[in-house]
Nucleic acid binder design. Structure first.
Length: 592
RNA sequence: GGAGCCGUAGCUCAGUUUGGUUAGAGCGCCUGCCUGUCACGCAGGAGGCCGCGAGUUCGAGUCUCGUCGGCUCCGCCA
């Protein structure tokens, strides 16, 4: 061994080490050669500490130090001493190491970006050199927070009698839900495994087996397009419990988050979390994952304008639509251009246009639709919106849920633009959204699809609705929403075979298809399935919320780009034709 | 499947609107000087397939088309 092993960690050297000899290992940070004094910092994942060489007394060391560059791997031996000029800005700033010997363990090329927190470097470069990106202290902080979440999750659930059981990564491809990633079978040519979208069915089967409290920190895979909070492979804290109702799942989950927030952030969350129905969330906030850290609630003005001589409104009302608004406080000063931007924004969500009423600071009304409204109607709108001089009312009229969704999106957009979101960034608003519809109508395939998943139990009182009007039936499904992000979701499952069959048939699945696709679950339900339910928590998003980062790539060590590429290892990639033929696969690539 | 923004030095960006001398800046890098720095300072220096390919033009970083890549959003994501 041509280097000396560390006796201390860089970031942990403190005043109590003064007078002692230490050896540290790490990466050279900035080297500051003053001629008569040479300073350089040595960094490891615990922090950094200053080393000093005094050329007057240490000619040989000073000579060797000329070779030292940033990111070289080094060992340093020396005595810890008090600094003549302490630096209060860093944890080890009171002390320094007077080098008595050191060595370069390994040189490093000049990195493509500096290893420090505030770099504006392009995502592509950072991903290509992910090992350097991950060396930055902010990224290490993210990874260490993530590690804390693993440890606390394991401890918490273990302490509460949960059993961690691994479920297969190679499983059967099932219809419904996201697109599967497929894995060809060599031994069974022409057949494929799928990577799990979640261990849903396996954890239900484990309930049948009597493991009444299960948890697993597990990778899930969905072959869908990516977003800033979505990766094709992501991690869930997967939980399932037997002999429980919704409230039991809530209290176990809440206990976990209380512990997590306390131990990671020192933050006390109030229990129990608030609950809000899906209908209420949509009506008041235009979202099934509303951000409750601020108001700006949707105001329904359908009744106020029901007699207005305005074709756009009367047509919407005739077809049972909704006319609503949000009050963008103090935004009457928005220019034509800004309003146009908001209109374009609303169009992304299916809006045909966006009406507005400006209440100018002098009380004057400026609105392209004013001429269609009586003074009384305008006055009532302003009153309902609680509007004051200087406010801007944004009005959407459309099919009910589309209008609400548009207003909900505008609500967030206005909060972003006006700095409201920034002002609440240190707050946490945890709440449950409950009573989701059981089904969603899919226009494409002309059938009902499960809104949560096909194993979700309907609410007892809504079972009679199943035949007459499935769209009205509500599910025992719930989402955990934090600051406008869905951190988890779950449901009480169906544990009776006949109800499960009924669900499949309502979704337009024949008995044969249900048998072929989900027969193994249906069969298991026949052999003494206990009532059960659970939740899946998005670990990546939890870490995002804890660290305050906006992008899921920040909390995943080796993420994919928006197009699903891994720039570090260059996957996905072509494979040898031998590999394909062994699998019995030939390519039929789509032509342009 | 669709939309928007971006691609110029190792990195971040200006220059593109209105085509025309030798394509600039900051940081980083290299060399020298400097005894308390810590984003050290000072002086000097190197460094460019203007993403790639066609086209228009006397002439393209700048205009057009295509293509590749990154980011964001809609659809999609039980």
């Amino acid at each position: 061994m041509n280097w000396q092993k560390r006796t201390a960690k860089c970031g942990e050297i403190s005043l109590s080490d003064v007078g002692n000899e230490v050896i540290i290992n790490g990466w050279a940070d900035s080297v500051r050669n003053m001629g008569g004094m040479i300073f350089f910092d040595v960094r490891d994942r615990y922090g950094l500490v200053q080393a000093v060489i005094e050329p007057e007394n240490q000619k040989e060391l000073a000579n060797r130090a000329k070779e030292l560059r940033s990111e070289f791997v080094v060992w340093i031996k020396g005595n810890v001493r008090n600094r003549e000029n302490p630096n209060p800005n860093i944890p080890t700033g009171m002390v320094e190491i007077l080098v008595s010997d050191f060595g370069i363990i390994n040189k490093a090329e000049v990195p493509p970006f500096e290893i420090k927190d505030d770099i504006g470097t392009n995502e592509e470069i950072k991903l290509r050199y992910r090992y350097l990106d991950l060396r930055r202290s902010i990224m290490q902080k993210y990874m260490l927070t993530r590690n804390k979440v693993y440890q606390i999750a394991h401890l918490y659930f273990y302490d509460n009698d949960f059993v961690e059981i691994e479920t297969p990564v190679l499983m059967k491809s099932t219809p419904e839900g996201a697109r599967d990633f497929l894995v060809p079978s060599r031994i069974n040519q022409g057949k494929f495994y799928a990577l799990p979208q979640s261990p849903q069915i396996f954890k239900q089967i484990l309930m049948v087996s009597g493991y009444d409290r299960y948890m697993q920190i597990v990778k899930c895979f969905r072959d869908e397009d990516l977003r800033s909070d979505r990766q094709p492979e992501f991690t869930q804290i997967d939980v399932e419990m037997s002999f429980v109702e919704q409230d039991d799942v809530f209290s176990v989950t809440e206990g976990f988050f209380v512990k997590l927030w306390k131990e990671v952030l020192g933050y006390d969350l109030a229990e129990p979390f608030q609950k809000m129905s899906y209908e209420e969330a949509m009506t008041r906030f235009g979202s099934d994952k509303p951000d409750l850290r601020f108001g700006m609630e949707i105001v329904n003005i359908t009744d106020i304008v029901k007699n207005a001589e305005f074709k756009v409104f009367s047509e919407v009302i005739a077809s049972n639509g909704l006319i609503g608004l949000i009050n963008a406080k103090g935004c009457a000063s928005y220019s034509r251009k800004q309003i146009d931007e908001l209109t374009e924004f609303a169009k992304k969500y299916g809006a045909k246009g966006l009406a507005y009423i400006k209440i100018l600071p002098n009380g004057e009304i400026n609105s392209p639709i004013a001429k269609f409204l009586t003074q009384e109607e305008t006055g009532n709108i302003i009153k309902a919106a609680n509007a004051e001089d200087g406010d801007l009312l944004l009005i959407s009229s459309d099919k009910k849920y589309r209008a609400l969704t548009i207003l909900g999106a505008l609500r967030i957009e206005i909060a972003k633009r006006s700095g409201i979101l920034d002002s609440v960034k240190d707050k946490f608003s945890f709440h449950w959204v409950v009573d989701f519809p059981l089904f969603d109508y899919d226009e494409e395939s002309n059938r009902y699809v499960a809104m949560h998943h096909p194993f979700t139990s309907p609410k007892e009182e809504d079972i009679e609705l199943l035949d007459a009007s499935p769209a009205q039936a509500r599910a025992k499904a719930y989402d955990l929403v934090v600051n406008g992000a869905e951190l988890g979701g779950g449901s009480i499952r169906i544990h009776q075979e006949d109800v499960q069959k009924k669900m499949f048939s309502l979704m337009g699945m024949s008995d044969e298809t249900a048998e072929a696709k989900f027969g193994f679950l249906l069969k298991a339900l026949k052999y003494g399935a206990p009532p059960h339910g659970g939740i899946a928590l998005g670990l990546d998003r939890i870490v995002m919320t804890l660290t305050g980062t906006e992008n899921i790539r920040d909390v995943i060590a080796f993420p994919k780009t928006t197009t699903g590429l891994s720039l570090l290892d260059g996957s996905p990639s072509e494979v040898d034709s031998e590999q394909l033929s062994e699998l019995g696969i030939s390519l039929a690539l789509k032509e342009e």
